[in-house]
């Protein structure tokens, strides 16, 4: 079962082809890492899938329907949830209210204007918080949590809409090495349990090679490799993209 199919996706910023004719797909339940050196076009690609950028060309099909160019909220309603590189939560709400807000939005109850929001979906919110290990902080203000905990809350928020696909933009950025593994292990366990597919970008190679089912490597806007950890690791193009060919100095003539 294929859940997301990206075909010939392109995006230009001025004269720069940030994403150039990129195609890949994610199967249901797959844990797919999108990696590449800085400036490879990962984030741009990512933002076209989640609706923050409209592509200049190409299509994004989700469950057979085109989603390219739709606003983020519409993409959420199609069953795609996301987390942000810098975790985004609602700072003026408690941890539980953050998840309740996501549940209220998911059930399309945001235009209710009389009954207290705190009484909506509370058990379900606590259950989601339990799954990410944050149930003890349920009634604390979200703004006073440690960053690693905010990331967990964000994960609970993302899961509240019962997504089929979870997009995670550098999920472990800004976290300590120990926390990184814990978080990704948690994500992996949750998505296997729920049968959710995950597309994530990541700079930490430890995380990528330990957890990803498949790895897509981008460089200069194009896909240069697509396969499992072993084949990607051995790929000469990938090695060249990350470590360079060593020819830069030869050509400049500085080193004989």
């Amino acid at each position: 079962m294929t859940s997301l199919v990206v075909t010939s996706l392109s995006k230009n910023f001025g004269a720069v082809r940030a994403v150039d004719n990129v195609s890949f797909s994610i199967a249901g339940g797959e844990f797919l890492a999108l990696i590449g050196p800085n400036g490879a076009g990962k984030s741009t690609c990512f933002n076209m899938i989640n609706g923050q950028l409209a592509p200049d060309g190409g299509t994004v099909l989700f469950d057979g329907r085109g989603i390219a160019g739709l606003p983020p909220r519409e993409i959420c309603r199609r069953g795609i949830a996301r987390t942000f590189q810098v975790a985004a939560t609602f700072g003026s709400m408690t941890v539980a209210e953050n998840v309740q807000m996501a549940l209220i939005a998911h059930t399309r109850e945001i235009y209710r204007w009389w009954r207290r929001a705190a009484s909506y979906h509370r058990p379900r919110a606590l259950d989601l918080l339990r799954q990410v290990g944050m149930q003890d902080a349920a009634d604390r203000p979200c703004s006073e949590l440690a960053y690693g905990d905010v990331k967990r809350v964000e994960l609970a928020i993302a899961l509240a809409s019962d997504p089929q696909l979870l997009l995670m933009d550098e999920p472990t950025a800004g976290m300590a090495p120990g926390e990184r593994n814990d978080l990704i292990r948690l994500v992996k366990a949750l998505v296997i349990e729920r049968g959710v597919s995950v597309l994530f970008t990541e700079h930490s190679m430890d995380v990528v090679f330990a957890f990803a089912d498949r790895i897509v490597v981008m460089a200069r806007g194009r896909i240069i490799a697509d396969g499992d950890a072993k084949s990607v690791r051995g790929d000469p193009l990938v090695q060249q993209a990350y470590f360079g060919s060593g020819r830069t100095f030869e050509r400049a003539g500085g080193v004989s």
């Binding site: 989640n50 923050q52 606003p71 983020p72 909220r73 959420c76 309603r77 949830a81 996301r82 942000f84 985004a88 939560t89 609602f90 700072g91 003026s92 709400m93 209210e97 309740q100 807000m101 996501a102 209220i104 939005a105 998911h106 399309r108 109850e109 945001i110 235009y111 209710r112 204007w113 009389w114 009954r115 207290r116 929001a117 705190a118 909506y120 928020i157 509240a160 809409s161």
Partner: peptide, 22 residues
């Protein structure tokens, strides 16, 4: 204090996150 007020605050606290949850 109702869902509408919360949605309003959600949009103020983090427009990106609010849009991302629909």
């Amino acid at each position: 204090l109702a869902p509408f007020g919360y949605a309003m605050r959600a949009g103020r606290d983090s427009p990106l996150r609010a849009e991302a949850i629909g």
